[in-house]
Write a protein that binds this DNA or RNA. Structure first.
Lengths: 343, 343
DNA sequence: TAATAAACTGCAAACGTTTGAATAGGGCAA
DNA sequence: TTGCCCTATTCAAACGTTTGCAGTTTATTA
């Protein structure tokens, strides 16, 4: 035993057999005497033999590994999705190799490159806020490489995607605020290059219209970063600058909702009496706030699990990207809590 | 072009050259005519050639991939650490393959198995709450396999580890509470099989002693799950059951600190006037709470980065596990916020 | 006893790449 | 014409595994 792992050849040498016999013995092939099998297994055990997955990958051109590209790990929603991905991947015998783009398109491109070099069997992607062109995806799609988008999905032909019903979630949230008697509902909207931002904004718009309220363009305010600080600042300004003080905020995510809460508190406005607030995602901390934050729940774990199932089904040819449904839309669920409930 | 990626052989066939020439041409070896190099590169480009990292791994017995085993991805601290790991790994040309143990020892064992099969170059581990024996680690350590522990580190010989100064953090937090005039400080302690739980408890004990206060065993209460619900329940009970009502809580993590806050609020106790609370980790949401939660900051990103640097240095033989420092202790930093500041 | 089947085991090629050693071809000098 | 040295290229083996086919025993049957 020189350096490192014992191989099939080491076992073969030890027993004066050929490598092929060892291979077959270990896999309980017929045509190998049980005596030999016994001995082989014994020696394998003794040498602490472990099959070399790399050699297998090379031979089978299959690595049983899937790649995941997400904007950030330190993000409640994405880490939840990753959890779902892990769960299914491992139960089906796949490894997960993870990279985060840190919201940089450049990173996304290089990640996909190295993943392809590593003979990944398929990729799951949620693209970055910084991504404006999609050639790095369309190229691999055209080669017929298994690729599934989740949450942040591009509008490119033939892309398979798993997402939540952002429109409906936004619609429900806005309708709820209206139902609670709020009149001047502001929407803090997300990054413009994400389809989900548009969907959420449209849900907001349609809910207003449906309830006979008109959409005031100055009530739709862009929060591209979606951070607490950004929205706190923006909301503070709005509270004084607008001719009529807004009395509710439907926010594109929970961080900006927290920022809005803080700004309202700074302005001595009572939540939910004077201002109602609803976020999006239902992060962990929603129930830790005072008052608890209403939010639109997104099934992150389920999304990861479903996307992975679909990806692996494509890899294993149980699904055909040509004929299958192109997008799976999961239901959102408005969680009404104190921050928006007047009665 | 049959199925999938172009290989060196495809280029060779196209140009009527041998594989070795192609290989050398692509790497700008001397002894290949520049004319040939030009043509080779041109065809490589045309065929969208990408070197097969698997084949390289097999040949070099190096995969340029490191494995990471953490208890949970959906955990602010661990995801921050992962972020640091990713950063360094990628900058040094390594991939990261991630698994979560979900706090199950069994998962940890199987993860390590499959990682070794995949010819991982090294592993970073933070072990699960469920882990009681460490054979799965000592075995690979004895084989001389590169392995670095972070945050949750076992007390086994020759283990290399990166951790924070849990003792000092706890000491500082407790001292701070004492300095704010709190008299009956309860410690919600963590899972018993984690060394960090012991360290934090000892920091708490020593801070009391140093200030001439005696350690009351009934003031050290186990919160093995460290969840909001668990601690809310436990603290609610304590507030009434103990002969003297506790007036401060030093909690093993931020979730249990939130639970303690909630329990105090339920009991109509004013924070920090009547009760002081300090958590551990300084999670994102500390500043979102009302009052903001004091907590001991742990440098998660830095921890991930340092652990990865050390691991890769070991892999690349720039560090020798036999002679190097066995543990790197990072400083914690008490962040004093409203939840514990009376003046 | 010889032919034949049955039961085991070995050979060699393949996956894609690298690399030390070998070879082919050409030019040049003696 | 022979010998020699470049230069440009090819050969072959190796990494660890699998697998169709061929080979070698041994036992069975006529």
């Amino acid at each position: 035993m020189k350096t490192g792992q014992a191989t099939i050849k080491d076992i073969a040498r030890e027993l004066n057999l050929s490598a092929s016999t060892i291979s077959r013995a270990l896999k309980d092939y017929p045509g190998i005497s049980s005596e030999t099998k016994r001995k082989v297994k014994e020696v394998a055990e003794k040498l602490n033999y472990r099959p070399n997955a790399i050699a297998l990958s090379l031979r089978n051109s299959r690595s049983y590994t899937i790649g995941v590209i997400i904007p950030e790990v330190v993000h409640f929603f994405f880490s939840t999705v990753v959890s779902g991905i892990e769960e299914i991947a491992h139960s089906r015998g796949y490894n997960v190799i993870l990279t985060q783009s840190n919201e940089k398109m450049e990173r996304e491109v290089s990640s996909i490159e190295t993943m392809l070099s590593n003979q990944i069997d398929g990729v799951l992607v949620s693209y970055s806020k910084d991504t404006t062109t999609f050639d790095h995806f369309t190229n691999v799609l055209e080669e017929g490489f298994p690729l599934v988008f989740f949450d942040r999905v591009p509008t490119i032909p033939n892309a398979i995607s798993v997402l939540v019903d952002d429109y409906q979630g936004a619609f429900d949230a806005t309708t709820h605020l209206i139902g609670q008697g709020f009149q001047h509902i502001v929407h803090l909207s997300g990054p413009e290059n994400l389809k989900l931002s548009k969907d959420r904004e449209n849900g907001y718009r349609d809910a207003l219209k449906k309830n006979g309220m008109k959409v005031n363009p100055s009530h739709i305010i862009s929060c591209p970063f979606g951070s607490v600080e950004e929205s706190r600042k923006i909301v503070s300004e709005i509270l004084t600058s607008l001719p009529e003080r807004p009395d509710a905020f439907f926010c594109c995510n929970d961080s900006s909702a927290v920022g809005a809460m803080m700004a309202c508190r700074d302005a001595k406005l009572k939540i939910p009496l004077e201002v109602g607030i609803v976020g999006f995602s239902d992060w962990q901390f929603c129930t830790m706030l005072e008052p608890q934050l209403s939010s639109v729940y997104q099934p992150g774990f389920l999304m990861g699990a479903k996307a992975t199932e679909i990806l692996i089904d494509i890899i294993e040819k149980k699904l055909d990207p040509k004929t299958m449904e192109h997008s799976l839309v999961l239901e959102t669920n408005l969680i009404e809590r104190a921050s928006s409930k007047r009665f």
